[in-house]
Nucleic acid binder design. Structure first.
Length: 254
DNA sequence: CGACTTTGACCGGCGC
DNA sequence: GCGCCGGTCAAAGTCG
């Protein structure tokens, strides 16, 4: 299951938005219901989606096996409907796809409604690892890249921390390394990454400065700018993927 | 030639 | 039922 994030990031109550697709598939998308989900919701989510998916499939499979490619695809899709919890992070960066130690293959790109910036879909290239991530730019602050991870890596990072990350963080003035690999147990992170990575919580926003380690040595130094976890959910409005993690005032500047 | 990206098509969920 | 939208697929193209 998911690594417990809280112990890894002791300085924030919730380190990343974990969003269940239940909010997409089973619950009315009221702003309040999109609230902060907790780790405990994961089991529930899976159970619910399992049951739903199983019921659907049983009904279909009892009649006949899928024959065409399309049918197969549909069946596969329905099986895949259950999804991992997601974690979103914000990175102030000029480049969309940031090096995080894993190899990703882009499998899609879509225009996002109400946003001039497209959303890119990536999948971990490692076989048997179905971690996905979505990358999009914040509508209101194009310098901010919102990265949403879904799933958990079943393998250690294939890449050693490369100078590119260091370089991108230090040599490129417009990058503040605030991204993180939430599904990666911190034990798998190199010290370098632990220093550099910084998870974004929709209630925590890194104020564009250069990454600095805090006194406790966790490497996480951020400002709480938007809200507290307790009030954050109420502030969220429906903005698609961004609603999961981006404070409403960033999405809608009026 | 393999790995990766691009991009149009397709599908399912959801609101009206 | 219909249309919109998010997510995914897969063929074609690109790159090293």
């Amino acid at each position: 299951m998911l690594p417990s994030l809280a112990p890894n990031f002791p300085n924030t109550s919730i380190m990343a938005k974990e969003c269940s697709d239940n909010s997409l598939n089973q619950q009315p998308a009221t702003p309040n219901s999109s609230s902060i989900s907790s780790a405990s919701s994961e089991a529930l989510n899976e159970e619910q989606t399992d049951n739903k998916g199983a019921a659907d499939q049983d009904e279909e499979e009892e009649h006949d096996q899928p024959k065409t490619k399309k049918e197969l695809k549909a069946k596969k899709a329905s099986q895949k409907r259950q999804r991992e919890p997601r974690f979103a992070f914000m990175t102030k960066s000029e480049v969309d796809h940031l090096e995080d130690g894993y190899r990703w293959r882009k499998y899609g790109q879509k225009a996002v409604k109400n946003s001039p910036f497209p959303r890119s879909y990536y999948r971990c290239t490692s076989t048997a690892c179905n971690v996905k991530k979505r990358v999009e730019r914040s509508f209101n602050d194009p310098s901010i890249v919102v990265t949403t991870y879904e799933g958990q890596h079943t393998h250690p990072s294939p890449l050693i921390p490369r100078p590119t990350l260091t370089a991108s963080a230090s040599a490129q003035p417009n990058i503040s390394t605030t991204f993180a690999m939430p599904s990666m147990p911190r034990t798998l992170l190199s010290h370098h990454y632990q220093q550099q990575l910084q998870p974004f919580n929709f209630c925590n926003y890194v104020n564009g400065g250069s990454p600095t380690a805090n006194a406790s040595g966790t490497g996480f130094h951020h400002e709480r700018r938007f809200c507290t976890p307790a009030t954050g959910s109420a502030m969220l409005t429906d903005h698609g993927l961004l609603q999961d993690i981006v404070p409403s005032h960033m999405l809608k500047q009026e």
